[in-house]
Amino acid sequence: MQVKPYFTAALVAAFLVAPLQAETLSAQGIMEKMDAQQRDIADGNLSRSQLSTCKFGTSNKQISCAETPRVKVLESVSKQYGPNKKDSKGISILLEPASERGIGMLTYNYDDPSRDTESWLYLSALGNVKRMASGTGEDREPVSVFGSEFTTEDMENGNVDEYSYKILQEGPFNDREVWVIEALPKPERLMKTDYSKLLYWVDKERFTLLKAQTYDKRGKPFKQILFKDIENLNGFWIARDVTLINIQSQRLSNMKTEAVALNVTVEDEFLTQRTLTDFAYREKTLEALRQYFQ
């Protein structure tokens, strides 16, 4: 009976596995690398996106819209600033639906927690630029983005240090090798988040998300986010199709990036209030950037 050698081999194997794990990236390191990549993508970025929201029905795990989706189309430009590119400026113009066409929003986000987010809103009906009272955006309930299931919390990046991370599993997922990483909000984050836990499926080679799962404050599954149509554009991997499924409200939102230009030169002057009211200047600049659309 070859019991003793079997157990010895298992013990040796267990010890061998541990050192190998220590040489790979930590969960925190993976998330930081992914966050840095997202900031690089947002630095000099022009995109035209369609955001669709609907109630859904399920049949054999296949979900589909149970009503005509509400569609918003927007064009956005963003640029990162600061020594670590953690500050950002961005402008978004709503193109559809007709009732909201022309609404423009300019936002300045700062990594420094002592600096409030600054934002200005242009309403075409009023013809005026208004400074908004927004604070940091994180000291209040997460706000729905354009009435979709995405909240401001779902869209933000740069808060890597506010979570503790652990690798739960590694292996193949949808033909890609992934880490499954658990993120638990630290106490300061727990006060201003909708989520008690998040899980991320991170592509090991590309450091992109393939899937994310959030849990509500009672620990129940809340939202599932699927990332599809992942392409390499100018050396960056981006998901052009992101679907957020709210399991509790039975509603989903899909964001399709119809056209995107990465790593383009965006003049600092473009990310100012001028762009909200000087339409001739805005279109002149956007036309020059749109030629890089992919």
């Binding site: 157990f7 267990a14 541990a18 819209c65 699927l226």
Partner: peptide
């Protein structure tokens, strides 16, 4: 041996199937 390997054995298999799937081409 089992205790040492416990970090790579999880109660739930996150890599399995059974996820929701949505075909966004309908939009």
């Amino acid at each position: 041996a089992l205790a040492l390997q416990s970090s790579v054995i999880t109660a739930e298999d996150f890599l399995g199937g059974g996820d929701f799937d949505f075909d966004s081409s309908e939009i």
